[in-house]
């Protein structure tokens, strides 16, 4: 009985200490979304249970090792007490954990539901992921950008798809995470409500090969007024002449990741001096680069490949992505790079 009392006190003390340690050491990043608040509450419950169970087992084991240790000349003689088991105890430590586990799952389900509350006035953003970039489209304003701009305290509905392999959308400060899959019937949604103005980063969390480590894009959460200002400037700034329009399109759609404008070698051929030049193709023939060839190469990138460059690298969905007008703007831009 004496042992039991000491152990109970020790377990309580160590539980409190361990939990205080876990709470104060700063284990989680800044809490910057409504979903994060919900999730962190569940984290805190977890920290309590972890502290208690860790203290319980380790106090019993360490106490026993110290208090009942072999003493003096007892080196070789003697066995421990003959206790083979106790069914009541076993039932207790099966049933209590069972109830705890079911209760915890219930808490988990409630927490999940709370992160999935959908508000009717959510801002729509379409997210496209690819190896190895993100880009964002605001269908309500027809704005495209490679930085995610979000107004504070307003829910945003991310509609996400990938052009190649599985990626995953994660901003640690927002906590929630969702894989981004390729395929029209695998479009996934994620709801977020940022609560703190600031600069964050979306980081791809699903291993997508190659430069996975660098698949990050800035996320800017701004006040509602500033967000509106940004939308207005973007809409007012829509370039009119085809060359600048084309330049904007190739930046937003990640083309410049592989094709340089200054003659530098990349994954794909540079655009500098491309128009009007004569190129050798991988099947041995030659071609003069004109509007028709460029259009074909964007829409069907695997048909006429310049010698020395790999096939099946460039996405082949640009026919759906770009309108005829946008295609001619891009070509006008390439044309301007002499």
């Amino acid at each position: 009985m004496k042992h039991l009392a000491i152990i109970s006190i020790l377990v309580i003390i160590f539980t409190l200490l361990a939990n205080y340690f876990l709470q104060s050491v700063g284990l989680l990043p800044v809490e910057a979304s409504e979903q994060a608040t919900v999730i962190d509450k569940l984290f805190n419950t977890h920290f309590w249970i972890i502290s208690f169970l860790f203290s319980l087992i380790s106090v019993v084991v360490v106490y026993s090792l110290i208090v009942f240790r072999r003493k003096g000349d007892d080196e070789d003689e003697g066995d421990g007490k003959y206790i083979t088991g106790n069914n009541t105890l076993e039932v207790v430590w099966t049933v209590i954990p069972l109830i705890t586990v079911i209760f915890f799952s219930f808490l988990g389900a409630k927490s999940l539901a709370a992160t999935k509350v959908i508000e009717p006035e959510a801002l729509n953003v379409n997210v496209t992921a690819g190896q190895w970039y993100w880009f964002f489209e605001y269908p309500d304003f027809e704005i495209k950008t490679d930085t995610l701009f979000l107004p504070v305290d307003r829910q945003v509905k991310l509609t996400m798809t990938s052009v190649d392999v599985i990626h995953s959308f994660w901003v640690p400060e927002f906590r929630v995470k969702q894989d981004v899959l390729p395929g029209d019937n695998f479009v996934k949604e994620l709801y977020l409500t940022p609560t703190v103005v600031g600069d964050y980063t979306v980081r791809c969390a699903e291993f997508c090969g190659g430069a996975h480590a660098y698949m990050n894009s800035p996320v800017k959460v701004m006040s509602k007024e500033k967000f509106q200002d940004w939308v207005d400037t973007e809409l007012g700034n829509q370039p009119k002449d085809p060359v600048s329009k084309g330049q904007k399109l190739v930046t937003q759609n990640g083309c410049v990741g592989c094709h340089s404008s200054d003659g530098k070698e990349g994954v794909g051929p540079t655009w500098k001096g491309l128009f009007g030049s004569t190129q050798k193709l991988s099947d041995g023939s030659t071609v003069t680069v004109d509007e028709e060839y460029l259009t074909n190469s964007i829409v069907k990138p695997n048909v006429q490949i310049v010698a020395g460059y790999p096939a099946n690298v460039m996405p082949s969905n640009y026919a759906d992505l770009f309108s005829q007008d946008e295609l001619s703007s891009i070509i006008a831009f390439i044309k301007s790079l002499q």
Binding site: V60, R69, G85, L98
Partner: peptide, 24 residues
Amino acid sequence: LLVAVPTGVKFFSWAATIWQGKVR
């Protein structure tokens, strides 16, 4: 989470085995 139950039985049984043991 249900996996915690049989795993818990193991931990509690180990702790109870060590309890009052004469450890070498």
